[in-house]
Structure formats: C-alpha cells, structure tokens
Nucleic acid binder design. Structure first.
Lengths: 342, 342
DNA sequence: ATGAAAGCGCTAACAA
DNA sequence: TTGTTAGCGCTTTCAT
C-alpha cells in the first residue's frame, strides 16, 4: 500500500501536487501530470479512502439498514439502492439487523456519522422512530425508504408509497372479475405496517357495496408460512370465499400453497392477489397476480432525497417524496368468479 | 458530531485519557472514568471510525463481492457472511458487481486496502483470478468463498466445497429409487462452474453401470428460465426420462415448471433433484429434493480464513479449508420410478 | 494516573 | 505551476 508521499517522491513532486493531479483540481503542467500518473501506475497506488473521508469530514458511503434478508424483497430493494448509490459514486454499506433491536442500535451507533455519511432505513413494523430521531439530532442524515402510513408521518425525511391505493387496485381487480365473497389475509398486526393496504381494500369493497364481515380477515406475519396458516384458518371458517386479498406477496404465496393443500384450483376455484411484485411472484405456479410497487423508483428517490438532505446540512425541514402509483400486474392466480364451486 | 477533544474538555482531561477510558487501555482512576463517561453520555459522543481506521492502519470492515443479487443464493450467503463478520466485530461492505467486470474492477480498486481490510469473493464463472492476484500482490487479503473446481485450485486462499460429492449424492439418490433413464440439466457451460457437480453425477451412474449418453444432458445458464428451457429441449428429445438431475436449485425449479407445462406430474411421472438447498427449494410446490450445501459453514470458514490471512500479514502460503460434505434433503420432487409412464 | 506530542494519509488554503 | 503549512479525529509512546 503506497501513499501519496511515495508517489510524490518517485515523481519528484510534493504530495499536494499528486493530489491535484488525481483530483483534477489546481493547475498542473502536462509534463508533471504525466510523471505523476506514471508513478501512480508504477506503484499501483490507490488513495486511502479513510484518510480522504477524515479530511473531507465525510466518507463516500451510505448505509442501508434492513431488518432481514430472509424476506426476499429486501435484497431486491438493496440491489436497487446500491445502483442508485453507485450512480452517485458512493458505496453502500448493507446493515442487516436481523430483526434484532440490539443489532440495529449497534449499527446505528457505529455507522452513523463516521462509517457512513447517511443512513437509509427500510421500513418495517419495528422501526423505532425515536432512535432515528436521536440519530438525526446528532447530525446524521436519515431517510426512511417506503413509508406506508400516511396518518403517522414521521418527523424524518421519507419516501412514501401509496399502499392504500395498492389495496384499492387489488380489490377493484377482484370486484371487476365478479367476486363478492372476498377474504383478506394481512401480513401484519391490525395496527401494523400493512394496515393501509387493508384499508384500501376495505374502502373499495364498501364503495362497491360488497360486504366484508370481520370474520373474513386474518392478521399475521409477513411470511409464506404465516400466509398459509392464515389461509387455512380463513378457508375453514368461510369455505365459500371465491377470492382472497393478501397484503403482501410472501403471504400470498402461502395462500397459494394452502389452496393446493386443500385441493382448490387457483384461479378456477379461488383467486388470489398480492401486493409488491417480488421476483418470486412470477416464479411460483400459478404465477401470482399482484399490485407492483415501484421499488426501483423508491430506491432512486430515497437516495436522491438523501443527497438533498446531505447538501442542506440535515437541518432543513424534513421533506418527503411520493413514488408513482402502484400498478396491477395480472398473472395466473386470478380469474372471473364461477357461479358456485359446491 | 462531537469529538474526543470536546469530551475531554467537558470532563477536564486530555483526549488521550478519554481514549484510554473508551478503549479500556491504560490505567484511569474510577473518578476520572466516571466523569469521562458522563461527558460521553451528555455529548452523545461516538468515535469517528475513519480516524480510528486511519491511525490503526486498517478499518474494521470486510468487503464481500457478489456478482448478482438476482440469484437468491447470494443474499442468503451474504447474510451468513454478515453474521460471521459481525461476530468478530467487523462491518460488512456488500459490493454487487451486477456481473459487470468494470463494476467489479471499480470495487476492487476502491475497496481493497482502504475501505475494507480484506475482500471476500463469491465464486462465479467469471471471477477473474488474475485481478484478484494483483490485488493480493498489492497487499490486500483476498479469500475466495466456495471454490468448486478441485483441479484448478487458485493461488489464493479459498474455501472448498465438494460439489463432486454433491453430484454423486444426487445421482445415488435417484439410482436408489430405481431410476435408470436419468437426464441432466447443468446450469453452466460444459467448462463452467458446475462441471464437477455433473462429473460427480456421471461417475455415480458409471459406477452403477447406468448408461448416460451425451444427448441426455443440456448445458445452460444458472437461472429458472434456463432450467425450464433446457428441460423442454431435453424432454422433447428424450421423452422417456424418469428423472432429471439438475446442477443447481434455480434451474431445477425451472425443470419443475417445464414438467408442469408438459402436464407431467412430479414426482410420479418425473423425479427432479437439485443442489444447494436455497430457501426457494422448500417454498416451491412440489417442494424440491436437493443436496444441501453447507453455506453457513462456508461463510464462517471464509471469514475465519480471512482473519487468519490478516493476522499472518497476507504473505503466508495461500491456504484453504473444506466445508463438511453436502447432505441429501429429501422433499417431494423425487419418488420411486414407475414401471412406465406411457 | 494523566498529559504532551507525534503522526496515520490526505486535502485545502495560501505562498512562492 | 508547484510547495508549504496546517489540520481532520484518533491512538500511542513517552514523560511527568
């Protein structure tokens, strides 16, 4: 690992000149530039990014805090974030908290303000906004990716996604197919993250005059297994459902499995629709109809917002941005309702 | 962002003492320690990890280079690596090269030696060992995770996995079920990464005296789509296969889909077996029988090896370690052969 | 038990 | 056009 000084010595100049050559700042004669470049080449010199970060007061690194890589959506999103970050010549530090608050705290402590210049936080039920506010107060730029509760807007910059509308879109697709007995499987607690998706669904049903009694919804976790279990319970209690709205793709896939377990054909016996459009959605059979969330766009917007916050010194009023509206993606898990399946 | 100096000023001591308190080095009186800790608390002080890295000559960060997050195995592996790294109090910098050599080079340049103390490289067909050797020559510790070509051992530290044996195990499972017409779908080119898996398969068949003519194998990409296409071609050419060996889970899932496309029941009409045991393997229907690769162990070993390389100053003879042997995981995609399906 | 001083590798004034 | 100087925040001898 050679240093600027060594390069300078070899080229017969001072480190400052080498720095100027490398950064393209200041005026340097062509002859000097070439000698310097040759020396860099010869020594295989690479700048020490730590030293640079130290003197510049900030590293060219952004951290992304995700709660779990087990949920396949997060890697997909992380990839999108990484692209957006690289585009701006930053590096991405991926911090997996593994759903462990202690882990999360440890990361925030360590990463905020020194290892990374700012922290992007993926939404999740357990995000403790308090901690993030404290981090922000310490001067660390924080941006929430994909906030989905319009009624609880946090005092932090965030990217909003209209999940209420996603719920509406899903419900309207089912209604348009003639379904009137539609159950719901929600991948969070009733007060949890997915509540607005469910509200959108309920609102659309109400608007259409289609009843949706409380026994036709199940709340649970955001996993395939939870979705399968919920669907088993739901279908046992209300066997004549012709369609199930699911608040996320992962539990929707669980619902697909439950249908298979029960010998129900999807979509002829039962239609299933999810939200998000993760890769798995078109890899399972039958391929899942879903409402695609613009996650690439959300990633790009989040990074863009982060850059703005950084520019503005992190003191400006917290701002936010909305992604474009989610889009229906029709695949093979939904179909026109049949007269009756008994 | 407060500094050591500020903490010291508040506590009425010099930065050196604060450092001693925080790092638990040197002797400090209890009274002083408490005052310092109180000041730290009051200011919300967090050490600047860049400065620390600079003075210590190396950051507490390890980089992981992966080629693509599109392949779901990589995030799973990245998670395991992250755990192993965190256990040793390091941070993980995830670098996704997106299968782009330029990206990879950019990462290696930037990360090696300053942003990260060492570089873990996930295996892939395109890993250009030359670049990595150059990096190592520049003094950057490099460890290859999961090397699978025993005949082309690189001049770099690596973790080996016996994929030949994985192929053997898969083949023997099929043979034990009575299959004698077994096709193969390989998720790489004939000279590519998966070749030893296929050799293992072939060796086991040969040993059992079961013929495997060249027209019963298809080579292709390591994706679901490639697997499906390969299976379509294979089953069109050789319709009376009763089982297909696939060199990886992702294309194996594609084979499952091809079977569904053709109206073949798995496993009654056709048995399918993969290798790796990614999460998807038990999420698809029918759940995939596969040979599980000890990837958590590989991650742990890779990080451990990295630590050793770091300790030994990166100059010692490249060493390597092998994971334990892959294990058969029987699920629902394999069954005893039927007499005949026509 | 604590302080003083030097320096990690780099950048950014300012001088020459 | 190039060199000099100072300093980013921290750790680490070596004194006291």
């Amino acid at each position: 690992m050679s240093t600027l000084v060594e390069v300078g010595r070899l080229a017969g100049v001072t480190p400052a000149t080498v720095s100027n050559v490398l950064r393209g700042r200041g005026r340097v004669s062509d002859a000097t530039r070439e000698r310097v470049l040759a020396a860099v080449q010869q020594l295989g010199y690479r700048p020490n990014l730590n030293a640079r970060a130290l003197v510049e007061g900030r590293p060219h690194t952004i951290a992304l805090i995700v709660s779990s890589i087990a949920n396949p959506f997060y890697p997909e999103f992380a990839l999108a974030v990484e692209k957006a970050v690289r585009k701006r010549d930053y590096f991405l530090l991926v911090c997996n908290t593994n759903n462990d608050p202690a882990q999360e705290a440890a990361y925030l402590d360590a990463v905020g303000g020194s290892l990374a210049q700012g922290v992007l936080v993926m939404n999740a039920d357990f995000v403790r906004v308090e901690e993030l506010l404290a981090l922000r107060r310490r001067g660390v730029p924080v941006v929430l990716c994909m906030w989905e509760k319009p009624d609880e807007a946090p005092e932090l910059p965030y990217i909003g996604v209209d999940f209420h509308q996603a719920g509406v879109i899903a419900a309207e697709h089912l209604l348009k197919l003639g379904h009137t007995r539609i159950g719901a499987v929600v991948g969070s607690e009733p007060t949890g993250n997915h509540i607005w998706r469910y509200r959108g669904f309920c609102d659309a049903l109400a608007r259409a005059g289609v009843p949706h009694p409380p026994e036709e919804v199940r709340f649970g976790g955001d996993t395939i297994d939870a979705g399968r279990n919920a669907a088993h319970g739901l279908l046992a209690a209300v066997p004549d459902l012709s369609a199930i709205f699911v608040s996320n793709d992962l539990p929707a896939i669980g619902v697909l499995q439950a249908a298979a377990d029960l010998g129900l054909e999807v979509p002829s016996d039962l239609s299933v629709i999810g939200i998000t459009d993760i890769q798995l959605a078109h890899q399972v059979r039958p391929a899942l109809t879903t409402v695609a969330v613009p996650s690439e766009e959300a990633a790009e917007l989040a990074v863009q917002l982060m850059m703005e916050v950084i520019e503005d010194g992190n003191n400006a009023v917290p701002r936010h941005a909305m992604t474009s509206v989610p889009q229906l993606v029709v695949r093979d898990s939904t179909a026109r309702v049949r007269r009756s399946r008994n």
